[in-house]
Amino acid sequence: MRIRHVISSLGLLAWAGLAGGLMLDRAAAEEAAKPLARQDWSFNGMQGTYDRAALQRGFQVYKEVCATCHSLSLLSYRNLGGGKGFAAGDESASGPGFSEAEIKAIAAEYKVKDGPNDQGEMFERPARPSDRFVGPFANDNAARAANNGSLPPDLSLMIKARANGADYVYALLTEYGDAPGGFQLTEGMNYNAAFPGHQIAMPQPLHGDDVKYADGTKATIEQEAHDVVQFLAWAAEPNLEARHRLGIEVLGFLVILTGLFFVLKRRIAKRLGLH
């Protein structure tokens, strides 16, 4: 028994020391980075849904501000209506909920290259609802050339491609400012407290009143940022509402079935004299 005690106390001591060291190190690391402010998003939680009005406003912000530089290549104009739910024929709105006519009108504002036609030539035609979102640049190199060599990333998956994406993008859009004294800002870069390294090529996109909301909502920076993050969160995960709905049903079913299995198991155990 002595040996056992020696080994266990030695082991415990070693692990405690290691854990303590790691925690100290961790605390030091966290001091350097400002923690991300958590926002209360409507799509968080088990019953979370997107805010339909915010999605429409957010689309407007994307269209009138972000789309000057950022593509949204994984979305089609048809997605702007009700989303496609999980069950067949379930068209309950999970997208911004624009009507078919509105979607047609939005799509028709853009030109897509099609062809070749009967003469073997490529031609331009107005976009249709089935077309993907038309990006601002013909290709990545054109985008770089127009933006001082940096490529404005596609926004389709932005919220899922960053840790705590919604909070991060919200912070990024609202935390532009002047560099604190002593901060070496490279020529052509902008100071942003939320961006890793604090130097970002994108100039401040939202200043307040960048768009005029049709529903009369006041277009403050915070409001615009909130709306466009809602829109981008939906763009990244359009099936979130269907997922949340189905999840409740599946879990309810499984809990009942598992309970039945448990009761059945206990009875058989009793019958066999096991417990």
């Binding site: 079913f253 079935l257 009761v263 059945l264 009875r267």
Partner: peptide, 22 residues
């Protein structure tokens, strides 16, 4: 017990079918 077995069995079949459908 027989009813319980039957109910559990039926629910299992429904569960498997619902799982396979998607």
């Amino acid at each position: 017990r027989d009813f319980l077995t039957l109910a559990t069995g039926a629910m299992t079949v429904v569960g498997v079918a619902a799982f396979v459908w998607p």
